[in-house]
Design a protein around this nucleic acid. Sequence first.
RNA 1: GCCUCCAUAGCUCAGUUGGUUAGAGCGGCGGACUGUUAAUCCGUAGGUCCAAGGUUCAAGUCCUUGUGGAGGCGCCA
Length: 473
Amino acid sequence: MIKELLLGKRIGETIKINGWVRTFRNNQFIALNDGSTISNIQLVIDFKEYEDTILKRINPGTAIYAEGQLVESLGKGQKVEIKVAKLVILGDSDPEKYPLQPKRHSLEFLREIAHLRFRTNTFGAIFRVRNSLSFAIHKFFNDNGFVYMHTPIITASDAEGAGEMFKVTTLDLDDVPKTENGHADYRQDFFEQATNLTVSGQLEAELGAMAFSKVYTFGPTFRAENSNTSRHLAEFWMIEPEIAFADITDDMNLAEDLLKYVIKYTLDNNLEDLEFLQQRLIQEEKQKPQNQRSEQALIEKLEFVLNNDFERLSYTEAINILMRSKPNKKKKFKYIIDKWGADLQSEHERYLVEKHFKKPVILTDYPKDIKAFYMKVNDDNNTVRAMDILFPGIGEIVGGSQREENLEMLLKRMEEMDVPAEEMQWYLDTRRYGSAEHAGFGLGFERLVLFVTGMSNIRDVIPFPRYPGSAKF
RNA sequence: GCCUCCAUAGCUCAGUUGGUUAGAGCGGCGGACUGUUAAUCCGUAGGUCCAAGGUUCAAGUCCUUGUGGAGGCGCCA
């Protein structure tokens, strides 16, 4: 692979290499990339030895095989290069049609050709970083004694309350069998009941935690919300650890440790990619007014997160800060905070993270009315042991809580919030037999990738994004 | 779902108050050069001005509707 050759340890050896042409300069210099690194290796050919018809076929995107000696470069831009002795064109790329020219393209254009965008420096870097983050997550949990649990993607449960779901059915949509009441008759469907794509693996992960003590899920999750933002996808990947014999503080510690670990892992293993993404961001922000530019460069920002404790405060404390804040007093907020109990809007979260604390913030102990049924109610009977981690530029990256382990309390909450207990006996059994304090959270993987890469649209950090009106590729 | 903005060459964009033949850079093609670094130099082709309808003597430009895109909001991860 090119990554290994560029280390320069094999100078003098005859090298065999495959890759795709990025540029072909001066009829002599091929910049070759194979995706192993953002850097290209330079192949030097003697154009006098090749027919014009061959040279014409060396174009951006062409797949080639080459053999030759790895030598110290005579030019200035690179340390090593390959003096080509044999060159084979494996796959042509018609320059009149190939959409990736050696020039800057807009992210929007590249999104339309998502099947080719991995071949650009930017998307190569993004998806190598995505891969590292994914690996680092598994490594973190594995090293810490967690069991990786595969929770179902098709579920009959719609009780998570996490949002609109995609229906899963084999019924003929042009001729749906009906019940006596005129509703679709799911008894005739594949699973003999209504099923959906999962919105969360949490409930199943709780079942696992009550046996393995520490589990995590890491898989695709689906929301059929009509969300048109740069932070939402209809299909996204979520990490959901669940830990038994643990409270909300353990949960926060776990989330903070995990985030710091995976960020450090990419800094240690993907520095070249991050440096490229940092430059890309600087260039992009040059076009913005000064006050909208980042205060820190990308790598500096990642190191800052690594080296500082996340600010932990309660919802109540946050409301007090917000009520006393300038934008609230001067009515600059679209939604003015005037009383305890209000749901925090993203403008408020941004104020806390980006203006007030200038660091990641963990908000805890939210009013129970604005949170899910399974969260443990505090002694004040008004708040629940929920925690959200807010990141600058991203907003909510983690949402978690200590779970209600007391059966009576849980049943009461389900009744209050109209969650059908009879359908969830399997879940309630965890509270019937050996119930124990436990907690967990959900981490939006793409939001993590957004933060680490400095990209601003979530559709650019997943290979083939799914969002309202779009399921191409 | 709501609000704002945008749509002109393969890409990025300019196009004046509505006025004759719609421009540039990059890319493509042809040639030159041959240690280049998104090479350089010379030449050249390339347009359903998003779609439909309307206003007007005249529409890339104004109006309406639709489609696509971007940003923001809500829902959340």
